[in-house]
Design a protein around this nucleic acid. Structure first.
Lengths: 188, 188
DNA sequence: CCGATCATGTAACGGGTTACATGATTTC
DNA sequence: GAAATCATGTAACCCGTTACATGATCGG
């Protein structure tokens, strides 16, 4: 069968996760992905979706059956046992390192700019920092609202913990940005 | 000239940043990138480097002059005025949002797994959490060591702030992981 | 002189984005 | 019957990875 060492990549894993929880057809998944991650409404990205589904089918991780009863003829997807197993293997894997030395550097794009702030004058730096504080504040609001709606929907404690991570992360950023602002002002 | 809306992507921007600070040839940059980001010693990735340099030259952001004096014939790179300007434009840009709703979700791969922890039993979850705590602890040590060497090298306060962000980030993660562990244990 | 390092490059391939094509069904 | 939405797909392109090719020079 030979697909054991196909490294589980981002989108593929996302699909397996969705399909582990419910059976659906492509369009439905697309809608849900965008509802979960994107605020935009054109609901694009059929490209990756259908090509990845084709690949998953070829790898024997899913099956797709055309539903002729429903008029627009959708293809209902089912996880195969191999697919289920591969998802669980990923879930229980303890390793997720990829060898990058300072991964946090890429996690927050602002840091890339910060790297060169010595070439800017204090006012410009102050402006950029304040912009970031505002952005983090906006994200905090969004995350807190999301947390509330998650509680009302009754999501499990692990998923709630994820949004808590997001909140802590933004709070930490804001604190760090304020310290940075002080340090920047003090150094001239 | 027409290259104004070429969105500045990760590696391209990294190169412009390096070249803003010093003139160098490809091989030297490659060494430095790996020294800064990768612990491995095979020092691979010529592919992206030289193709990107070619692209930057075609875009008029750099010039390359072959140094015939030095024997292995290196090509010394210089940022053009357009290149310098594009770097500064990026540096002073206040926007870095890309529309992803919960970007932090992708920032920490563990969260993707956490999303499905309700399907695992408490011991397995505990195991995975402890592994993450250990990993964060290792990173913390590395970052703190890096901070010390940065101080000794006399890097500017903004670059020091970047490593401080990394340290805060890992400390926050560890705290969050411990809370998660408690919550996980309490829920059964 | 042999291996390590310096130095520059090409080619194949991968996931992901963007844009387009197609057609059925629902809604107004 | 026109517009919106449902539903599936292809094709071109881009960044980045992996692997390979080439050759000069330096240290043992």
């Amino acid at each position: 069968m030979m697909f054991e060492e196909l490294i589980s990549l981002a989108f593929k894993q996302l699909l397996l996760g969705y399909l582990f929880e419910f059976n659906a057809h492509g369009y439905k998944i697309m809608k849900k992905v965008h509802q979960d991650f994107y605020p935009a409404d054109p609901e694009i990205n059929e490209g990756l979706l259908y090509t990845t589904l084709k690949r998953l089918e070829a790898e024997g991780l899913i099956t797709r059956e055309t539903e002729t009863e429903d008029r627009p003829s959708r293809k209902v997807i089912h996880l195969t046992e191999a697919g289920r197993q591969q998802f669980l293997d990923w879930l229980m894997a303890a390793e997720d390192e990829d060898g990058v030395k300072f991964d946090f550097f890429y996690q927050y794009p602002f840091l890339e700019r910060c790297n060169y702030f010595k070439y800017l004058d204090t006012e410009q730096v102050e402006l950029l920092i304040n912009k970031q504080i505002a952005l983090s504040g906006q994200r905090l609001e969004r995350y807190r609202a999301a947390r509330e709606s998650m509680i009302q929907k009754g999501v499990d404690r692990f998923r709630l913990a994820i949004i808590d991570y997001g909140i802590s992360s933004e709070e930490m950023k804001i604190e760090w940005l304020k310290t940075l602002s002080e340090r920047s002002a003090a150094g001239c």
